[in-house]
């Protein structure tokens, strides 16, 4: 992955970010910097704040930022509405893409692209071009054309939704993309197709913040840097070799010693049952499952 030229480079900078959901502080001082053409992986056990980080950066309602800053090329992202963040060049591929009955991807993306082009609303021609772009990108990740024509995410399988997120990412061509567990629900072929498409975009300058629980996706996304997040803080950073270490040892070395919690948290094997215990979650965590991401519970 060659570094993009200086004038085309964009940087998402997260500094000392603290954020809460309700009374629970989930992010406790996150520092990260993602630039054009670079792929950063943020890995951590369930409940570590991975998804919260993604949502706070994109501005999902339900969180309060209590300290720190997020800037894109020096612009204060946190003062922008979610759609303004997207227009500024951020994209969030969601872990659980929302079903939007009666609204097609073409309708939504044509509105976004028209606005970016400075138009009041999409012309029929822009709508048609958006539709063609979506179909071409769908083909690139093996998603049937009729699925992108459907109301967004309605009656789609988990894997189809993830491919649909990748399709929209490719059509919108953001500067920095946050991928929230893009690998979950994807079979190996789909994962490879999505990762290849995203990697091609990074070669054209896209910066990626890939949030994941498992190392599998990183075989295809090939991160430049890997960060470990535990209890809302980045506790370790390194090169791709860090992902290999996590594959071998799991997150246990990063978790506090917990005499009662004898089971290590494994990152191997999909579907492994998380360990019981409360070591990795805040003592006053209001959510029933200490390993669940709070936002999953909030819906």
């Amino acid at each position: 992955m060659s570094a993009p030229t200086a004038e085309a480079a964009h940087t998402l900078r997260i500094e000392g970010l603290h954020a809460s959901a309700g009374d629970t502080e989930i992010l406790q001082g996150v520092d990260l910097e993602v630039s054009s053409g670079r792929v950063h992986a943020v890995m951590g056990p369930n409940g570590s704040g991975k998804s919260t980080l993604a949502h706070v950066v994109m501005g999902r309602p339900g969180y309060e930022v209590t300290a720190g800053s997020v800037t894109l090329d020096g612009v204060d992202v946190l003062s922008l509405a979610p759609w303004e963040r997207a227009q500024a060049g951020l994209f969030l591929a969601m872990q659980h893409p929302t079903e939007v009955p009666g609204v097609s991807a073409a309708q939504a993306l044509a509105e976004a692209l028209a606005l970016r082009a400075g138009d009041d609303g999409p012309s029929d021609d822009q709508l048609e071009r958006t539709r063609s772009l979506l179909e071409a990108e769908a083909a690139a990740v093996g998603l049937k054309a009729e699925l992108v024509a459907r109301p967004l995410n309605v009656d789609m399988s988990g894997g189809e939704k993830k491919r649909n997120e990748t399709v929209q990412l490719a059509v919108l061509q953001p500067r920095i993309a946050i991928l929230d567990e893009i690998d979950s629900g994807l079979d190996i072929d789909a994962l490879r197709a999505c990762a290849n498409r995203i990697e091609a975009l990074t070669e054209a300058g896209l910066g990626v913040l890939a949030i994941t629980h498992f190392t599998r996706v990183l075989e295809y996304l090939r991160p430049d840097e890997v960060h470990v997040i535990v209890d809302g803080r980045i506790v370790d950073s390194g090169g791709p070799e860090l992902a290999e270490a996590l594959e071998a040892d799991g997150y246990t070395p990063y978790l506090p010693e917990e005499p009662d919690a004898g089971v290590a948290v494994s990152i191997g094997g999909l579907g492994s049952t998380p360990a019981s215990g409360t070591g990795a979650s805040a003592p006053d965590d209001p959510f029933a499952d200490p390993w669940a991401d709070p936002l999953d519970e909030l819906g």
Binding site: R60, A81, W83, A86, Q87, T98, V100, P101, A108, E111
Partner: peptide, 28 residues
């Protein structure tokens, strides 16, 4: 609110996102 946020996260302004959701509601 989730539907609105999803559309906003694609770059659709709030008022347009809401209008799309209302139209979509009646579609069926």
């Amino acid at each position: 609110a989730d539907q609105r946020f999803y559309l906003e996260s694609r770059g659709v302004p709030t008022d347009v996102a809401e209008a799309l959701v209302v139209r979509g509601f009646f579609d069926e």
